[in-house]
Nucleic acid binder design. Structure first.
Lengths: 140, 140
DNA sequence: ACCTTATCTGCATGAATTGCTAATTAGCAA
DNA sequence: TTGCTAATTAGCAATTCATGCAGATAAGGT
């Protein structure tokens, strides 16, 4: 995702308006690698701007996703997560704490089953335990 | 997933009862490679046994999943899909018709990001167009 | 400063799934 | 076969996540 300043320009030239709510979300998302949900972003936004609507958070996330500034991912946690890192990567989900980490994979090799299928995208979800949670399990 | 007969034995020895509803679902799921949703299974079941509850379908699917007889997968279609194929495989989702196909992959190689993460499972979702839908797109 | 149009908020709605409970039934044992 | 007990079913309520809608508001070009 581009910087808040660049997004401001991009939104205006797309005919979209740059409101305080959106500027706040731009800032909260920039360089955010926590893969937040709409709800967690709303919580973070509320502590800075009380009264901001969850609906507005969803709307802005949708706008950003449509502009290709972030990607939404499904990792089985029930709700969508948003990732401002739009480079080609994958995700590892900790079954202990639920945290999501970025993973860079060369290319997912295919053996059988894709003969008659043209692939445009592949996404890998790894499950397991992160370092901290592995340590916890070991001491139990 | 094992055969309806084997599941009958397995359920009884697990202290679970084998009802007509469950027997029907065993049959509908056996050798089913359509990756059905709970709702589509319920529709299929209803045409054989009118009055069967969607709640019962969910319950039985949960039981089967807990026994390791089927796996539930998320492919971004909004609802869970159930796969009686529990061998190690992945899925390709057609953006045209929504159909889900099985894909067999050697092993998802990892480059960077999993240094401090112990992986217990990896699942790849491919997106693209199946043969039929690719042909349709080409003629447009 | 004005005017048009996008945006915000709050609420209603929708879709998928799970929780709850009275009535029923499977399946073991006598 | 009959009876008993615990599991199951069905139906509805509740929950969660996300989107639709409409009046009030505000961005930003003129």
């Amino acid at each position: 995702m581009r910087s808040p300043e660049e997004l401001t320009v991009a939104f205006r030239s797309a005919g979209l308006k740059v409101t305080p709510q959106r500027q706040l979300l731009f800032r909260l998302l920039h360089d955010n690698s926590s893969h937040p949900t709409a709800d967690s972003l709303h919580s973070a936004a509320t502590s800075v701007m009380p009264g901001i609507s969850l609906r507005t958070v969803y709307q802005t996330l949708t706008d950003l996703a449509e502009m290709g500034e972030l990607q939404s991912i499904e990792v089985g946690s029930g709700s969508l997560r948003f990732d401002p890192n739009v480079s080609d990567h994958h995700h590892a989900v900790c079954d202990g704490c639920g945290d999501v980490h970025d993973v860079y994979v060369s290319k997912a090799p295919v053996l059988r089953g894709l003969d008659d299928f043209s692939v445009s995208d592949a996404h890998i979800v790894y499950r397991g335990h992160c370092g901290a949670c592995s340590a916890l399990v070991a001491t139990k």
